[in-house]
Design a protein around this nucleic acid. Structure first.
Length: 585
DNA sequence: AACAGTTGCGCG
DNA sequence: AAAGCGCGCAACTGTT
């Protein structure tokens, strides 16, 4: 087979590895599995080499250890890649996936079950130190040498082709790998952040920026109000245990100091206390210290962690990128001459559930812009609020309260959808494994789980043991119930991102707009993704292309639906806004 | 002084 | 103390 492949045949993959001396080796792998001669390059020679390949008519899929270890340097040199195969992320999926029958070789390759590489994009003082004594203090990462990468790629190709549905798995790995590219690109471009606006919002809420260590004026005033209302001039508001005892001394009968419980009480100290807590949260999580630490040159650059959540959702590290309060959204502001295109999917998870379960009634309820209203119009519940509570309860496994009470109505109206999540819960309760639409599987319960169940089935088991085992089993059932929906929604979102990324890259760079140099050489002249939050994207774009970007975002959502679910009659309607600032909602 | 665990709240 | 899933982070607490 190797002999018959024509010399002109384009490589399907190009495998990158890095030696201990920093030199790079490139090995082309053709579709038939045959390999070319390794090409050795000095580190500096890699970007032009990749750039030249990317210009060719058939884009290479670069196979590398993991994106954060390779891609930042390329972007910094002005080189973008179209496709990759991320060995680390793919390993994590494959070693767990129930679609893959023989996982022994992958499971034995422990070195690939590791943390993401260190993003060398913007080395801080600390990470420079870490690099100097590499091998010591940092978290373990995957191997980058050519031999290890090559062996792992072989194992993965074997696992994929032996799986029960290679195409699904390939789609999942391609989507996950595209996400890895997006994550590095978004960090490189950064979120355009208007620190002055952020400062203004903080001052408006908290009072002027206090000197280091001091409390802002508005918080001091509120704290005084609370202490006066409690009749306790020494009450501490910042320590939950101390606050709790102060509240109880003042006759406020609460078991914790959390917001929802305080709201039940009528005492005059409560209202200022809740406002104090709100401000305290703003100050500590996203106050002036946050600006100083995270915003440079008008950009906020968090580290995104694709696959950081078991379900396949992304996590983030640094500055709480995925938890930015919506009140600070106006600080997310386009550069002069640029705009932000913000888009989010309405009710992604229930729509995904309707699609994967083939529930026609649920799909029909979601055929308009708002699935919850659709459920009300079908006469299943009386209000939109009830519809929302019922649907969330169904996906999360609510058994009590308003939510638990409403779920049975959904079971009658949407039997296929409910059967799917109920079945997932049942499997989890028995300690089993469930999988998403594309084949990402849930982790099995830990050894502790099995011990509890075994203990409860012994003749010597007490009612307490039994209750505890049952509760743990149900907890795990709720996890697997949600896993299939949350995980498949994450897959839809990855497909959306991947498609959008390609469409944006295909748009012509426009002359005559002010460049956005802070976004880096690859993106300073063209639309690029700057933010992603589970079911929402934000694109930073030259004004002239804003409308085209909005269309691309829409078209990408339609493509993602087709890619995952084919002709299933499920819509994924978007709310798309084009503005200078990200809207608050 | 450094660490792990808990609490509470931000996001979907 | 959420009922009902998945996270990250800061502050505080108790331990070593």
């Amino acid at each position: 087979m190797t002999e018959t492949s024509t010399p002109q045949q384009q490589p399907r993959w190009s495998l990158l590895g890095r030696g201990s001396d920093g030199a790079v080796s490139v090995v082309d792998v053709r579709a038939d599995g045959s390999r070319g001669e390794p090409v050795r390059l000095a580190a500096e020679a890699l970007p032009p080499f990749v750039a030249e390949r990317e210009c060719g008519s058939t884009a290479t899929r670069w196979v590398w250890s993991d994106a954060p270890s390779w891609y930042p340097q390329l972007l910094a040199a002005g080189v973008r890649v179209e496709r990759c195969h991320d060995l680390r992320l793919s390993h994590t999926i494959l070693r767990q996936s129930e679609l893959v029958s023989d996982r022994a070789a992958l499971l034995a390759a422990h070195e690939w079950n590791a943390a993401p590489g260190i993003d060398a994009d913007t080395p801080s003082d600390e990470s420079t130190l870490f690099e100097l004594d590499a091998g010591g203090t940092g978290p373990p990462t995957v191997p980058h040498d050519p031999e290890s990468a090559s062996a792992e790629f072989e194992r993965q190709l074997a696992a994929i082709s032996s799986s029960s549905d290679p195409n699904r798995i390939r789609l999942l790995l391609a989507a996950e790998s595209a996400g890895a590219l997006v994550a590095v690109e978004m960090r490189s471009a950064g979120v355009p952040w208007d620190a002055a606006e952020h400062d203004r919002l903080l001052s408006e809420a908290l009072g002027p920026r206090p000197v280091a260590g001091a409390k802002p004026a508005r918080m001091v005033a509120l704290a005084d109000e609370v202490r006066a209302a409690l009749g306790d001039p020494a009450a501490s508001l910042d320590s939950p245990p101390k606050l709790l005892s102060a509240l109880r001394r003042a006759g406020i009968d609460v078991a914790s100091t959390s917001r929802w419980e305080l709201m039940e009480s009528e005492h005059p100290a409560i209202e200022p206390l809740l406002r104090y807590k709100k401000l305290s949260r703003l100050l500590t999580a996203n106050g002036w210290a946050w600006i100083d630490e995270w915003v440079r040159d008008g950009r906020y650059r968090p580290v995104y962690v694709p696959g950081g959540v078991v379900t396949g959702r992304w996590a983030s590290s640094g500055g709480g990128a995925l938890q930015l309060p919506r009140a600070l959204r106006p600080s997310l502001r386009a550069d002069p001459g640029w705009m932000l295109v913000t888009a989010d999917v309405a009710q992604l998870e229930p729509r995904v559930l309707a699609a994967m379960s083939g529930d026609r009634a649920m799909a029909a309820a979601g055929s308009g812009k708002d699935l919850y209203s659709g459920i009300v119009e079908s006469g299943i519940v009386a209000s939109r609020q009830e519809a929302k509570i019922a649907v969330l309860g169904a996906m999360y496994g609510a058994t009590t309260g308003d939510s638990g009470r409403l779920v049975p109505r959904l079971r009658r109206s949407f039997p296929a959808a409910m059967r799917l999540v109920d079945r997932a819960a049942e499997i989890g309760e028995q300690g089993g494994v469930v999988s998403t639409w594309l084949g990402r599987s849930s982790p099995p319960p830990g050894p502790h789980w099995a011990e509890l169940q075994a203990l409860a089935s012994l003749p010597s088991a007490t009612p307490r043991d039994e209750a505890r085992a049952r509760r743990t089993a149900r907890d795990f059932g709720r996890f697997t119930r949600n896993f299939v929906v949350q995980g498949t929604a994450a897959e839809w979102a990855l497909a959306w991102l991947a498609e959008l990324r390609l469409r944006l890259a295909a748009m012509p760079a426009v002359d005559g707009v002010p460049p956005a140099p802070a976004s880096g050489p690859v993106f300073e002249h063209r639309p690029h993704l700057v933010f992603f939050l589970h079911d929402e994207v934000i694109v930073h774009t030259p004004v002239a292309q804003a409308d085209a970007v909005a269309e691309a975002v829409q078209a990408s959502a339609e493509a993602a639906g087709r890619l995952l679910f084919g002709a299933a009659p499920v819509d994924f309607p978007l709310d798309v806004r084009v503005a200078e600032r990200a809207a608050k909602e």
